[in-house]
Computed example of a mutant assay.
Amino acid sequence: MSGGILAFFLLSLIAIAGGVFMINLQKVVHVIVALAFTFISIGGLYVLLAAEFVAFVQILIYGGAISIMMLFAIMLTKHDDEEKGNRRRLHSWLVILGIFVFFVTMFRGINGLTLGEPGTGFEMENARQIGLAIYSHYVIPFEVVGVILLVALVGAVSLAKQDDKEVNHHE
């Protein structure tokens, strides 16, 4: 077994375990940590595919920024952590059944798959090619996405502060 195959199985196991933990954990902060592990392991899978730029963006944006933004959103809002006993048990069995059906479907789909000849030259300066494309042809959409994300974050903080004022006003 080569190192690449071992790394693939390890990163895949971490990604799948993170997804399963995300579905089954009780506390919202633990769910975000499981989500961050999933994001980072998917970034590692991109490295194995020789897509270093996409891996870097995956880890930086999703593993870091999105996870931190979710943690801030959770800290700034109110939520219930009450458990639902029987409903939780049914939910767990449905999750296990869904995972089993997913794996059987994926196994049947991948089992007879032929990928053809591998491409060559894709990994040559891919970060440079993507950077040139983004900052020459797609500058305006790139900046608009940044502004929209900033407005969404400011709006979320504003709504959370408004709820806080209403709670203090009613008490």
Rank of each mutant, 00 (worst) to 15 (best):
V20H: 03
Y135M: 14
Q26P: 03
G155D: 14
V147Y: 13
I99A: 07
V139E: 09
F21P: 02
V151E: 07
Q26T: 07
L60N: 05
E83W: 03
F102M: 14
A15K: 02
E143G: 00
G19Y: 00
V144I: 15
F9G: 08
D80C: 01
G43Y: 12
A133I: 08
G85F: 02
W93Q: 03
Y135I: 11
M75K: 04
E52C: 00
I68N: 02
V28M: 08
F100I: 14
I66Q: 03
D163S: 13
T105Q: 04
V95S: 10
V47Y: 13
L90I: 05
L10I: 14
G3P: 07
V151S: 12
G19L: 08
I40H: 06
N111G: 01
E82N: 09
H170E: 11
Q58M: 14
F103G: 01
G85Y: 01
N168M: 07
K165C: 00
D164R: 13
G98S: 11
L6P: 03
G116S: 09
L25M: 13
G4T: 14
I42N: 08
I134E: 05
G63H: 08
F8Y: 15
M69H: 01
T77F: 11
W93T: 01
Y46P: 04
E123N: 14
L35V: 01
A73T: 09
Q58Y: 04
D163K: 14
Q58H: 04
M70V: 02
I140L: 15
F100R: 00
E83A: 08
S67W: 05
F107M: 12
I134R: 08
I110C: 07
H79C: 00
K84V: 06
I134M: 14
T105A: 10
V57E: 10
L45P: 01
P118N: 11
L150T: 13
S67R: 03
V154G: 09
A15H: 03
K27A: 04
Y46A: 03
G4A: 13
D163Y: 09
A36R: 08
G112L: 05
E166K: 13
K27H: 13
E123M: 09
I134K: 04
E82D: 08
L11Q: 06
F72E: 00
G116T: 05
L94H: 04
H79L: 05
L149F: 13
F9P: 01
A152Q: 09
L11N: 05
F142K: 00
V28N: 10
S41C: 05
L153Y: 12
G4D: 15
E143Q: 10
T114E: 14
M124I: 12
H30F: 15
A15W: 02
M124C: 01
V139M: 13
E171V: 06
L48M: 10
E125H: 14
F72G: 03
F103M: 12
N24L: 15
D163R: 15
G18H: 03
I74T: 10
L159I: 03
P141L: 06
N168R: 12
G63P: 11
L48V: 07
I99Y: 05
V20C: 05
F9H: 06
L159T: 03
D163C: 03
G4I: 13
H91F: 13
V29K: 11
T38F: 12
L11R: 01
F102N: 03
